[in-house]
Design a protein around this nucleic acid. Sequence first.
DNA 1: CAGTGGTCTAGACCACCAC
DNA 2: TGGTGGTCTAGACCACTGA
Lengths: 260, 260
Amino acid sequence: MTGAQMEETDGDFEEARFRAERSGKLGYQPLYKRVKALLVARIADGRWQPGQSIPNEFQIAEELNVSQGTVRKALHEMTLDNLLVRRQGRGTFVTSYDDERILFQFFKLTPDEGTREFPDSTVLSLESRAANASEAEVLAIAADAPVWRLVRRRTLGEKPLIIEHIVLPAALFPDLDAFETIPNNVYGLYSTRYGVTVARAVEKLKAIGADAHDARHLDCPFGMPLLEVDRRAVGLDDRIVEWRISRCLTEAHHYLSDLK
Amino acid sequence: MTGAQMEETDGDFEEARFRAERSGKLGYQPLYKRVKALLVARIADGRWQPGQSIPNEFQIAEELNVSQGTVRKALHEMTLDNLLVRRQGRGTFVTSYDDERILFQFFKLTPDEGTREFPDSTVLSLESRAANASEAEVLAIAADAPVWRLVRRRTLGEKPLIIEHIVLPAALFPDLDAFETIPNNVYGLYSTRYGVTVARAVEKLKAIGADAHDARHLDCPFGMPLLEVDRRAVGLDDRIVEWRISRCLTEAHHYLSDLK
DNA sequence: CAGTGGTCTAGACCACCAC
DNA sequence: TGGTGGTCTAGACCACTGA
């Protein structure tokens, strides 16, 4: 069962919920929130693909029997969530991971001097194993459910910068080892091949000392201060779809955080 | 000249700009953006104080000769910017730094286990000196303009956690050394005493090794990996009002970053 | 030029709060 | 019960895009 197939019932569920709550009053949600949930489901289940344009406001409004202003409010919130891009005169498009704009939404490491670049990656290992206790808890799966473990080294220019440990629930990503190459931008792969959209993420940052493994692969002294980033990436259905721990050299780079 | 007095001309400027661009077409801004800029200026110059309620939508709309919907859109964007808090049935209020909600907007360090707390502070030194080259550049002031340098140690519970170096342009904060105590939450002080509102901030994070000064005040070994946070705090007028470098122990704490 | 999203207005009704 | 913000609708007009 692919990700896209699995989500389809969720999409139908949203459609049903939308219509049910039009009349009933239980668990009140504003109309535009229900419209939004319904439209998000269409992206989640793949009916609207990344990069595609979607119908205009009036067409959606007519289909759902709400006013154009209500649809507008739903679409506007979705652009704030980085799910849609709207361009005057052109139309409304589902956000794609290939967009320059979105590439850096989840990549915060920046050179101290010079322009931002997206890093190259080398796969060090990819294997399937049973989830240990903490992995099962973080990913909210059964204690011995299969997971993928992917270890990568990432470089900017020549210099190794990041060692990345990625854990994925195998149920969401079948046959991941069938790909000849794991692309640089894995979120594009999740989206294109498995219909899994990463909507947001929570990162926890610490300073730690490099262990032997880090030191070997980052070509730095043992005990070197590294920035450790613990990321839990969340899908459109609010489930955690990826757990990633990155250890970064920050001699000439920094992690950029905007506080608003 | 106090901060509040200095800003007042800006406020009048915004009023003039608002009226001028109603007819002319140069540098077009949507009406609601101009309304927003005008209302922001009223907070910046202290006519609307933190914690106070502001007039309702219809009163503002009538005063400015725009529709209530246009005012609504301006107010809504201001709530997204954390400048206002709106509560159904009660009214619209200027955000105050005392609000539980806003306290953690700029304090991202969180215990690995247990609940979030706001740290206590001890002032280690406070002195006035001429800005060096990098300070002048960051704060966009003259090369030898006077600045305050404040060094604090911050603790959560018993444990020292953070060494903080704060640099402030003295022109914005006259007589800072006249206060008997520097409060825990300095942004409240900036706001209450100097009319300076910190609207947002940019933080750059690195992992570094503790130097002798850090080690002494944080009670940790020399070379201990620390999280260094370089913050530039931006006021309502988009100028940098504070430069702060914090070095944090992250053995049992982490920096929380939400990626949306 | 037709079609798209963006702005602005006007008015009705609802949910929440304080008195 | 009156006043507040929140939602929903309807329609006019503007700005941008691409054929």
